[in-house]
Nucleic acid binder design. Structure first.
Lengths: 344, 344
DNA sequence: CGCTGTCATGATAGCGCTACCATTACTTCT
DNA sequence: AGAAGTAATGGTAGCGCTATCATGACAGCG
């Protein structure tokens, strides 16, 4: 009785795949009605909707999102581009984004640039090819090609982590101010010979901005602002090694301002192993406010940034924008908090 | 002179989007040849390839991967499903996968189940809808619907982290053996009253398997194997709190075997703050081999698992499979290493 | 009674790309 | 010389879905 769908020679269909047409046929409606029953449930009658959903269930239909996206040029994919997955900071932002976006039925396309702007451009190109609904990227710096591509894109773009003149939406904090803030704290504490230690500042240029703030503050007080730049990425190990380096290069150092908590904690733990007293022999400060810093003794003085909240807020703003609502705010300053521990 | 492409009333094209046809026209070849120039460069002549690439550049063409995937039913997307992004273990696996896959031109679709198998099923459904080239998921446990869906899928499936009878490919380690190994170490050290502390073992069932191994070993030696199960996820904070709990519930405890290093390090640092000597007053062991454990004093005794390598290996195996080569090995035991520190 | 409006459904025609088969021009072999 | 293979290119027809417009049914209204 039931006619098979046409199976002409040129067909490329994978015969095992259940299509929406089959669901529609089983439910006794047209394909387009079945499509509506699934994607715009309020546009079909209750009885139709139910019989379609039943057929979906019975046939084990899995919607082909690729075909749907092509037809509608909307994909419910959100591209997230981060410079590193080792740095837990970005993972926390991803986490905040992910939990909010997945709850709204968006999927995440993840890319890692390894702090390389050309790689970023490649990833952006690929992701635009997927008709992503929006793009999230870390930072405000991009190469020209990338900037051109994004400028004409027409979908929301969210730049996270730093604050400034973004391409579209922007959430972050003022890193220069954060560097200044910590420098100020160290000076207040009476330290005069302060070294800044960072890792690959040309790549992790936000840490470079913090150094800039730090340096300005020190110069303003008539102090030198020596810098030790490591060639490895930030880690406990690198922090431990940098302590020795600082003590060798700048023996009279009273305090070290580290670009992040991994380095700082590594140095602090190394100092303990060497029998140095923190902060009496050497004061140590970090940045990020990782839990680790609050569990070691002495507690690490650091600057806390709301990373997961930043991700959540970014996601909420994107969703608001994607659902056609007017943007709440184009720019969010999530701020930072100086957490004075016992290490300074 | 140059005719515009047909612009009939029903067209839904976004006029600003450059299509492959336009590139082909500019290069003076047919669309299909342009497609080949980009996707199968060895199937066109050098001169054709170059003129197509020039047109791509000149027009700023960005391939529509959605259309390409629909036509070819191949997507170069790899789905990765993890139970948590807080747990750095999974992030390291993602990292290993990502660096290998992105280098081969694959993109990552990321999903997080929050240790919920129903959520996993939903994610799998969605990801299958994207015609992913392969799927990576953590663990061997899935619900029935998910298992059915995957069984008929026809693309590579990689189950990571644990070892056992998988659906397709499998890379991981034997958690029961790992639990046994650590328990054995603690007994060897002379400890008799040993408590196991884990977090949400019904969710993090791999930690539950380690407890099982631990318990078996202790029972075999005629020892009790008390368990403290926390209701929060593993963290330094939870570890610190659990130490107090253990000392209250089991005052005579000599050693604590923690389900992971976050808990163990949290407890170790808390013990130090309370003036307890580790391991003399209380011995502490963890699992994972996080860098943190090797930087605190005393160094944490733990079991090291090669997480990033696991990700890399998984990715390599998938790529091998996707490029049509016969599978090197269906199952990889990446093993584990007991790292004896000073905390036991 | 026709006019307009709303609701539910359907027919048609793509979305932009590539699989499949054909065609042409050569080369190589017997 | 003719058969048979190979390399480069193109025409056609989809992939599975949805935007768009059209249709029919029915209600409300003067």
């Amino acid at each position: 009785m039931s006619k098979d769908l046409p199976t002409n020679a040129k067909s490329r269909r994978r015969p095992e795949q259940v299509t929406l047409s089959q669901v529609a046929q089983a439910a006794g409606v047209s394909p387009i009605t079945a499509s509506r029953a699934l994607n715009h449930p309020d546009k079909v009658s209750t009885s139709t909707r139910q019989s379609v959903l039943q057929s979906v269930e019975r046939l084990g239909y899995v919607p082909n999102l690729v075909a749907g996206s092509l037809a509608s040029s909307r994909s419910r994919l959100i591209a997230i581009i981060v410079p590193s997955l080792i740095n837990s900071v970005f993972v926390e932002i991803i986490k905040g984004l992910q939990e909010t976006l997945e709850a709204q039925g968006y999927q995440i396309l993840l890319g890692n640039t390894d702090y390389d702007l050309d790689r970023e451009y490649q990833l952006v190109r690929t992701f635009l090819g997927w008709s992503c609904s929006a793009l999230v990227t870390a930072g405000l710096r991009h190469n020209d090609a990338c900037r051109t591509l994004l400028a004409n894109w027409g979908h929301p773009i969210m730049e996270v982590m730093e604050l400034g003149k973004g391409m579209d939406l922007n959430i972050g904090l003022d890193h220069t101010a954060a560097g200044r803030c910590m420098a100020n704290h160290l000076i207040d504490r009476g330290y005069q010979r302060i070294v800044y230690v960072g890792a690959r500042l040309s790549h992790d240029y936000r840490a470079g901005m913090r150094y800039l703030g730090h340096k300005k503050m020190l110069k303003a007080k008539g102090l030198e602002a020596p810098l030790l730049e490591l060639n490895t990425l930030g880690s406990l190990q690198a922090g431990a090694e940098s302590l020795a380096q600082v003590l060798k290069d700048y023996p009279a150092t009273q305090a070290i301002h580290f670009a992040n908590d991994d380095l700082a904690a590594g140095a602090l733990l190394a100092a303990q192993r060497q029998g140095l007293s923190v902060p009496d022999d050497i004061a140590i400060a970090g940045f990020n406010g990782l839990p680790l810093g609050q569990h070691i003794t002495p507690k690490l003085t650091t600057i806390l940034s709301p990373r997961e909240a930043m991700g959540r807020l970014a996601a909420q703003e994107l969703i608001r924008r994607l659902s056609g609502k007017s943007v709440y705010r184009r720019q969010h300053d999530v701020g930072f908090t100086l957490q004075v521990g016992e290490s300074t």
